[in-house]
Design a protein around this nucleic acid. Structure first.
Lengths: 350, 350
DNA sequence: TAAATTCGTTAAAACGTTTTAAAGATATTG
DNA sequence: CAATATCTTTAAAACGTTTTAACGAATTTA
């Protein structure tokens, strides 16, 4: 016989001959209950195949054990890998994930997304959309106060906002230092779109590393790409036209580095003998490019994990005192991975 | 002054001088309400900044406008891109997404995931975990009846199960036909792990295409990879040792194809002059490999979209009559993308 | 042994919605 | 003008939990 309605807590209660409250106490373990009735209740749960309705529970608890994740560009390695890190940590802490994807990083309908998340009473939010243009303009104290705790990924420091990010500036410095250390004399850079905060940070790191040692960081050595491999190909072509003696290039992601490598093959330039190439991100394929790509590894799983853990901390904190948790900033250190594309230092002519 | 509790529907009601029921009618639009009070209510909503509590609404509606998505391997292009397709279609249809990631495709704790999803009263489920080993053993009529409507991605036909999948067999046939048509004589295959249904389908497609024209599809032409580029590299080495006159290889994903290309470079074999290479998936990087990779394009966004739309249909259907919707199978057609890695047909010697 | 504690349990009141059934208006009909 | 039909609106009852306050029973203390 088909039962129309799923079994509820009072079904269990009558079956076990106790009150609904007692069943609740057994299941949540929040209040003591005698061993005898405890067993009776558990047996009833078993026999009836009872499953608590989390919606009802969340309603009365005013907390859903759910985290809202807002992200963009999941088809790319960085965001999707970060999401994996988020999910793992969230699962370990007992949170479910409500996922929202933006279709454009800049013209996002932020309000609609935020409204939906708060309407579903998420306990916290992870804003994993990269900072592009003024897509952070909505953030202000007033707004934040009306939201559950929220962690921002990859954005410039901002009063009142908790942030977790890779140290992009440092990563670019590591890459550039490495090129300098392997004896390169004219080092170009292929940046991401400079509306992206990340891209600007990486450009800054490149420039800073060169300036430190008094090397040329002229604008003719800078090409603004679009993160795509196609733009990397075009970039190297343009850079070489402007600076024929270019002997190294730092591409601000692995896709653009791939495009640069392709341009070298197409024009018969040998890598790394004639031109040395460094990427950023360490996508799994990069180790199998020809030649294998030297790159900067971000710890993306950790990025997600740290964000969730910090968010969890803030949620707990808000439950206790009404004081808003002081905003924190976590900066994760990337690391250099040396492969064939920079392996053989050439003997420079000066 | 901080209000402790967020504003509720009765706050709006008293502010507008009506009953809670009327406010509900205005907001949901399910029952007529006079223009005058309608305006008054909307103004009250505006002034108080009211946001309906979706948990409460879902509780009484017995439906959460939420879809559960269970997936695995999000760091790979296929799953993450499919998820994007799912999210877009879901957003258009007004569903939110509850995301669950499995950490292993095979030894998954299916019950826990399913319990959580039903406990949260999702309206439907998309099971986007690839079929590996016997990780579908839990599916039976009894079990399915206790669940909300569910769509399975990428799995073998099974009684009672609705499925959406790319036609992997066809894709492999397209790839192999293309190699045959460009005059190749000895065509190897690098498969994925044969515990994966997808991998077996692609292998079958390769074999079928060869058998059709009476060409050699001996087991010495088959190497079982692991989907990774490293395994692709090892694969081509092994295949060439076994069959030195191999002049083409079909790698069952682009990563393994990349590994194969790398092996060719490392050993000085020219592609496509000496060996022709085809991949599968059309990851964005593949167009910039050296040489650019001929591959099979899956329509992953559509895969996700079709799954959501079919799921939506089944949800609506179940709301109306109690009859379970008859299971459906959607098979999406992949397409061949020809690039440099097979571009120049060689004049074979026979 | 009476009074004071503890312990286990329960009935009832939340939580914030939607829906049902009924009641008031208002308009229509005979 | 009475009777009937049509609109609007509302109070109350769900939805399935947890929590509060109170209540007996059993135990300890004086």
């Amino acid at each position: 016989m088909e039962r129309k309605h799923p079994v509820t807590i009072v079904d269990v209660a009558v079956h076990a001959g106790v009150s609904a409250g007692t069943v609740s106490n057994v299941l949540t373990g929040k209040r003591p209950v005698s061993e005898a009735t405890r067993e009776r209740v558990l047996r009833a749960v078993e026999e009836l195949g009872y499953q608590p309705n989390l919606l009802a529970r969340s309603l009365v608890n005013r907390s859903s054990d759910t985290l809202g994740v807002v992200t963009y560009g999941l088809e790319f390695y960085g965001p999707s890998r970060t999401l994996v890190g988020i999910e793992r940590a969230a699962a370990e802490l007992g949170y479910s994930l409500l996922l929202d994807l933006l279709h454009e990083p800049d013209v996002a309908d932020v309000d609609a997304v935020l409204d939906e998340l708060t309407a579903r009473r998420v306990d916290g939010i992870i804003w994993a959309v990269h900072e592009v243009g003024d897509n952070r303009a909505w953030i202000d104290q007033e707004r934040l106060r009306a939201l559950p705790p929220i962690i921002f990924l990859t954005m410039a420091p901002r009063p009142g906002a908790s942030i977790v990010s890779t140290d992009n500036r440092l990563g670019a410095q590591l890459a550039t230092h490495h090129l300098i250390a392997t004896g390169r004399g004219t080092i170009g850079v292929i940046t991401g779109p400079l509306t992206w905060w990340e891209a600007r940070q990486r450009l800054e790191g490149w420039r800073c590393a060169l300036d430190e040692v008094g090397m040329d960081s002229d604008d003719t050595l800078v090409y603004e790409g679009s993160w795509s491999a196609a733009s990397g190909e075009a970039a190297l072509e343009a850079l070489l036209r402007r600076r024929p003696n270019l002997d190294a290039v730092f591409a601000c992601n692995d896709q653009m580095a791939l495009g640069a490598l392709r341009y070298c093959h197409a024009t018969g330039r040998r890598v790394p003998e004639e031109i040395s190439v460094v990427g950023f991100d360490n996508i799994p394929e990069s180790a199998f490019f020809w030649p294998a790509l030297t790159t900067i590894r971000q710890h993306l799983l950790d990025l997600g994990r740290v964000a969730v853990e910090e968010l969890h901390r803030q949620i707990e904190l808000r439950l206790q005192d009404a004081e808003p948790a002081p905003p924190t900033i976590h900066l994760l250190q990337p690391e250099l991975i040396v492969r064939e594309s920079t392996l053989q230092p050439i003997q420079t002519s000066f």
